[in-house]
Write a protein that binds this DNA or RNA. Structure first.
Lengths: 206, 206
DNA sequence: GATTGATTTTGAACAACGGTCAATATATTT
DNA sequence: AAATATATTGACCGTTGTTCAAAATCAATC
């Protein structure tokens, strides 16, 4: 067979990612084979290899799309300048996304590039952008000049929330309690502890 | 070739797990192939299949050993009946283990059984035993009759700690801060928030 | 010691995998 | 119309997990 004019290169790129997404939503990482993706878009496996470096590259791109979806789902939330309320809403939104897109979200962490290869920069930026959402919520909590503490708090909360969602979807730890309640508890009491500490160091013995 | 008398069935079982552990420590999940494990113990691949159901089963057993190691590493810690100090020590011990055994610990979560198969009961029990260590630290914090709150707190802390370690070893989120500090912050302020809330509901307006 | 029966062990075989590439068929330019 | 560039493929390679009949050995019996 030779050249076709059915689809442009960009169209093929999107078609492949779309097919891969549908397969991943059904069967997870295990179902994502080159031949199956290719068959789903009506091309042969070889065609995928002049769109992507290899199958890992395709999956990294698919994961990028998932991160974009997650960002869109969370960035549209209102935010009323109350750190605790905003963080709670963000956490619930994050949990809701991982529930609604369990297989795709799992793929973000189930997939590992062989041989210690690092992820591309744009991938880390997409994650950083998500972390930034949490950071923004904390702006009113920490005044100016306390950016380091704010970033630290965002990272702690983000990592913790991440752990809850992972243990949930991977079913590695039996949690007989909905993670929504756990996340609420985390945000509420961790912030309360921070407030106490801040108040003490400000109003107490300096 | 036929039957040999070199090793008993139990010896072979241990040899296979030991070989698999060494391979996993070097090359992670990707290096764990049936033929490679078999070659390392001087047998053919087929022999592994009358020791284990399949390769997934072998890895689940290997993961069980890793959970045992982790438990031994954490259970030997002293514990001086001060919840915050004990929890901090436990968290640091956990982090130290994941650092020292990064590849093996990763295998616990990198590996997924195909087709929604659940993990065996004994596996969940090994995890529950670890969670129990955290629970025990909290006994003095919550008095009797507050077991539900205690379990809840242990789960929140465990999940959160888990998330930090995962993001660290998987390098999915660039953390420009050692997770030891993040874990310390988590334990310290989350507990402080709990204390405040408890004190308020006890001493304040009922 | 010889014979029988139960167990291990193996190498060959299978289907499916990721990935490569020369051959080919079409699009595009000259 | 001829020449050139590009996209697509099917055959192919090595490797994977897994199965299984054949063969070799151990254990028990006569």
């Amino acid at each position: 067979m030779g050249r076709r004019a059915d689809h442009s290169r960009d169209e093929l790129f999107e078609m492949a990612l779309s097919a891969a997404r549908e397969i991943a939503e059904e069967d997870g990482l295990g179902g994502l084979t080159a031949r199956r993706i290719a068959a789903k878009i009506g091309y042969s496996a070889g065609t995928l290899y002049n769109l992507f470096d290899d199958l890992d590259d395709l999956i990294v791109h698919l994961n990028g799309r998932t991160l974009d979806s997650l960002y869109e789902a969370l960035a549209t939330a209102p935010g009323d300048n109350d750190p605790e309320a905003d963080l709670l809403a963000l956490a619930q939104g994050y949990i809701a996304f991982t529930r609604a897109n369990a297989k795709l979200w799992n793929l973000l962490f189930e997939h590992h590039r062989p041989g210690e290869r690092l992820l591309p920069d744009w991938h880390h930026q997409k994650i950083g952008r998500l972390l930034g959402l949490m950071d923004e919520c904390l702006v009113p909590f920490f005044g100016p000049g306390r950016e380091a503490e704010r970033n630290h708090t965002a990272r702690v909360l983000w990592s913790s929330l991440h752990g809850m969602c992972l243990l949930q979807t991977e079913k590695k730890l039996i949690l007989d309690e909905p993670i929504e309640a756990m996340a609420t508890s985390l945000v509420k009491y961790y912030l309360a502890g921070l407030r106490t500490s801040t108040a003490e160091s400000a109003g107490g013995k300096t």
